[in-house]
Design a protein around this nucleic acid. Structure first.
Lengths: 239, 239
DNA sequence: CGAGCAGTTGAAAGAGCTCAAAACTAGTGG
DNA sequence: CCACTAGTTTTGAGCTCTTTCAACTGCTCG
């Protein structure tokens, strides 16, 4: 159930069986959420965090005028809003992009982990710092990478992140997002996403049809994106 | 010496004298760094973090072609690269933008804090999550706010953050950055920064001369920026 | 006084946006 | 099994914001 979550943690550090038990014990509930539902609303005080077990979710911020931005995509295995444990409320919404299954972890249990399992606490701290690293890379993309490179970069990132959770199949993976949602993720308009997608396809880099992405030329995609996975901290270290 | 750092922490939570002592004891050294020096280089393994005592520093990421982006500005009192404690190396450089004084905190001491002072560890965890929140707001700025609003937003953010550390004077504060550096911060060109600055000045919102910024019309600046300080988590909470 | 940054200005080009309409695709109900 | 609807994708054309390139000014410091 939380295996993908454990896979993600274990890709970065050793997790003892004792710690694994603590994680499993911290899960108070498992809930299902429909697509397009807001799971956690910005500014609402909150006393639990959620681990995404299946589906796609995101952090979304919006401007007063309604236009918004998805600031991070979450895939199965991610602790979608661990940040709220120390922040106490969020500066953004957590939205289910597809039907999602979520494990609910009360903050009290997380507090106990910081008191009884300092190493595990550091692993979770790491995991929020990894989110910050992803945010930084997206800042760079938004500021400096033109649409095609930005999109290519996102596809590369998801390929790696989904791969860690065992959710890729060769060079393809499910990405059940509309072009509209992709636009909110890339800081573009859906019209431009459409044209950019056509460009990547005609350049022979990717195919994107019916919610499934296939990378047809990985090296070229990585090159076009200027993608270096270092910011995903893929090495195992004692945290 | 680390008072500004304590002011920043105490704006968000209660820090006991015991915890304060632990922080002071964690500082192994205080160093001075010249302007424009890279303090920590991306990808280099590192076993200490630094608290910025005076000056301005930043996190800077760059693309292969040399163009880069400042993904966060750091002001006195900030733990500039606490992230490296769990990440073990950084995905970006830490650069001194002005002459800086830095307190060096070895990671071993931070590890001890996570083991002996869980509450303080949570406060520091919070502080890295606050960095992530700032990254998210900058993502939104880069993606959706036009140049003038983006710049106005930055000036608002710095006004609040510097205020917490007691570094504002009425509605003005030192901001010893060139327009070139401002451009790297805002994801613009220096030419456009120049024109945008003229616009904000002619609109009567700010003055920016000789490294000092003066907000001439706070409400209008905040309005132009669509600035809401909620993402800076200015309330005291038990973390 | 001259060198070297930092800031300023102008003109042209380009990436991405806006608006608007048309073409698909599924799912629904008769 | 077909018609109908709603959502998504695609296309076109004009427009805007920001960039690029290039020159010029002004300041500071040796």
């Amino acid at each position: 159930m939380i295996d993908k979550h454990l896979m993600k943690l274990r890709a970065r550090d050793r997790i003892s069986s004792d710690e694994e038990a603590a994680i499993r014990a911290a899960v108070a509930d498992v809930i299902k959420v429909a697509a397009r539902r807001t799971v956690v609303r910005a500014h609402d005080p909150i006393d639990f965090s959620t681990i995404l077990l299946s589906g796609f979710a995101c952090r979304r911020k919006d401007l007063k005028d309604g236009r918004g931005l998805i600031t991070e995509l979450h895939v199965a295995g991610d602790f979608t809003d661990l940040h709220s444990f120390t922040l106490k409320y969020l500066d953004h919404d957590i939205v289910a992009l597809t039907p999602c299954t979520l494990a609910v972890v009360p903050h009290i249990r997380l507090k106990e982990i910081t008191e009884q399992h300092p190493h595990l606490a550091r692993v979770y701290w790491f995991s929020t710092n990894l989110d910050a690293a992803i945010h930084r890379e997206w800042e760079l993309s938004l500021a400096r990478r033109p649409a095609a490179a930005r999109m290519a970069h996102l596809f590369c990132e998801l390929y790696i992140r989904l791969g860690i959770a065992g959710l890729t199949n060769g060079f393809s993976y499910d990405l059940p997002l509309t072009q509209e949602l992709l636009a909110e993720t890339l800081g573009l308009t859906s019209v431009h996403v459409n044209r950019t997608l056509q460009q990547l396809r005609s350049d022979g880099l990717v195919e994107f049809r019916q919610g499934r992405l296939t990378i047809t030329h990985w090296d070229a995609l990585q090159g076009a994106a200027d993608f270096d996975p270092a910011y995903l901290y893929l090495d195992r270290q004692e945290r």
